[in-house]
């Protein structure tokens, strides 16, 4: 068989591969062309009878034949072996519910705290914790609260028979941190707090706060405070959210400010969430009052620092659109599972 004949046979063999509809038929094709008694061995034998000039060309053609047919057979075999797509065929219902482990969920209060830990963690704040049952000294006196301030009233604070109290804020943790460490201090203090509020849609006798404290020999100014709260606003509520300060009063900071975030829902135009003001009151903050440093033995002259505090439930309500704080303590599974 000369080169031309071989090439003809190759075309014919490739056609036969394509035409084979079953693995058995394909095996027949293989036997016909490549089998021990098939065309290829005959071809190789026939090379000897060719003129030397033709023999080389025919030899190359025969090799090409072998390679091409082997490959075509393999390809066709793979195609024939693949299962036929039988969508909706009997016994195969892909719409059945999948099998997977149930998903749990994180409580919105924990979500907000964990996010805050991350957000403040990114700018160097670590977490400090303290007891829920506090001394009056740490909760009030060390924080420069005047001795006749209304917050000390048994109407507002849960005093215990031991003379201790349930902390009304997490600020006492800041005092504990400053008592035990030297500056620089950069902490946030998430935790549970208690006030004798009558429970309604926005008040709860039991709630959570995140407070922060940054005291340093350089930095720690009102401008730095604004920057840190702006960072928090962007990360927690969205990159478009802005912050503004209003002067206020807290015993342990001076100047004291209240911090509003621009409304993440309407962008400041006014909506139900922001009570049509465009702004949402989020945090109380200020520059640490030097009288607080005196209580913990810090040198107020060398230092400057700021502190801030905010309500976790408040942020959760604003962020997730929860209208009643009691939902957060009701623990209805149908509410919780939405936070998966």
């Amino acid at each position: 068989m000369n080169k031309d004949r071989i090439e003809e046979a190759q075309a014919e063999a490739l056609e036969a591969c394509k035409a084979a509809e079953t693995p058995e038929a394909l095996e027949g094709v293989r036997i016909t062309y490549l089998g021990r008694k098939g065309l290829l061995p005959a071809m190789m034998k026939g090379l000897k009878g060719l003129a030397p000039g033709e023999r080389a060309a025919a030899g190359r053609a025969a090799n090409a034949f072998k390679e091409a047919v082997t490959q075509a057979l393999a390809e066709r075999r793979r195609t024939l072996q693949a299962p036929a797509p039988v969508a909706g065929g009997p016994g195969a219902d892909t719409s059945l519910p999948g099998r997977w482990h149930r998903l749990g969920s994180m409580h919105p209060v924990s979500r907000v705290i964990e996010e805050a830990v991350r957000i403040f963690g990114e700018v160097g704040f670590t977490v400090a914790e303290g007891p829920d049952i506090e001394s009056a000294y740490h909760n009030f006196e060390a924080l420069n609260t005047p001795p006749h301030h209304p917050s000390l009233d048994p109407q507002d604070t849960f005093w215990l028979d031991s003379g201790e109290l349930l902390r009304t804020q997490t600020s006492p943790v800041q005092i504990r941190v400053m008592e035990s460490r030297q500056p620089p201090v950069r902490v946030i203090t998430p935790g549970r707090c208690y006030r004798r509020d009558t429970t309604d849609a926005t008040h709860s006798a039991n709630f959570h706060q995140i407070e922060g404290l940054h005291v340093d020999e350089n930095g720690g100014s009102l401008s730095d405070l604004k920057g840190v709260l702006a960072h928090f606003a962007h990360e927690m509520m969205g990159p478009e959210v802005g912050v503004r300060f209003r002067p206020h009063f807290f015993p342990f900071t001076e100047p004291s400010v209240e911090c509003d975030f621009s409304c993440h829902v309407c962008g400041g135009g006014g909506c139900r969430v922001c009570k049509f003001s465009g702004w949402i009151e989020i945090a109380g903050a200020g520059v640490v009052d030097p009288r607080v440093y005196a209580k913990v033995g810090y040198d107020a002259e060398r230092l400057s620092g700021y502190a801030f505090g905010m309500g976790v439930e408040r942020i959760a309500m604003v962020k997730y659109g929860i209208e009643d704080i009691r939902m957060l303590y009701d623990n209805d599974v149908r509410f919780l599972e939405q936070f998966a």
């Binding site: 620089p184 604004k226 002067p247």
Partner: peptide
């Protein structure tokens, strides 16, 4: 005017000896 106080870009700095 508190609105005239700029928001400084936060500078991350670790206080020594603390861990999260």
């Amino acid at each position: 005017g508190l609105d005239k106080i700029p928001a400084a870009l936060p500078q991350a700095r670790r206080a020594p000896g603390v861990s999260n």
